[in-house]
């Protein structure tokens, strides 16, 4: 299968990649660009480990083709936080011990940051429903929800 030339913005940088027409955005990020922070847990959009944003919208990178990213702005876990400072969501994940194995963590952080950009003051229930597309098998979600609520509080100032 011949490859297609795709141009997109990834974490603020212009990127050109060649990807097969049947290759998912997830595979493009991981295999073609070496951005392995985005994880694959299911490849069917059920676990959220591959959460990224596309033009500000939260998507599962496994459900989108690489070629569909043409001209779009992609943000992945690698684009969150400054060089010497973590994003408040990342920091609160650490302080609340909201991760155990850490495989779901990038997806959760991308999804939670996206929520807080849309809704700076979510209720616990709103956080739970927004993150219902991200599976975590280690934590029982308790500390994740608390971390997101604390990050929201801090970001509201």
């Amino acid at each position: 299968m011949s490859k297609q030339h795709v141009t997109m913005t990834v974490n603020g940088d212009p990127v050109e990649v060649l990807c097969r027409a049947d290759q998912t955005l997830l595979d493009c990020l991981r295999d073609e660009m070496g951005l392995t922070g985005t994880k694959e847990g299911c490849s069917t959009g059920d676990c959220g480990a591959c959460s990224v944003t596309v033009d500000g919208r939260l998507v599962c990178a496994c459900l989108m083709l690489g070629v569909e990213a043409e001209g779009r702005k992609i943000e992945t876990i690698e684009g969150i936080g400054e060089s010497e400072e973590l994003h408040p969501v990342q920091r609160h994940f650490l302080e609340e011990a909201a991760l155990q194995c850490g495989i779901c963590t990038p997806g959760f952080i991308v999804a939670a940051k996206n929520l807080l950009e849309k809704n700076p003051n979510p209720t616990e229930e709103e956080v739970r429903y927004w993150l219902a597309g991200n599976l975590c098998r280690c934590t029982g979600y308790d500390k994740i929800i608390k971390a997101v609520l604390k990050a929201a509080e801090e970001m509201r100032g």
């Binding site: 951005l35 495989i103 963590t105």
Partner: peptide
């Protein structure tokens, strides 16, 4: 006490290498 875990930053920034991340 409850310090931040030593491997934490790698895991919240996508740097940590899991089984499928090796090349």
């Amino acid at each position: 006490t409850r310090p931040v875990r030593p491997d934490g930053v790698d895991k919240v920034t996508g740097r940590a290498n899991f089984g499928a991340d090796i090349s």
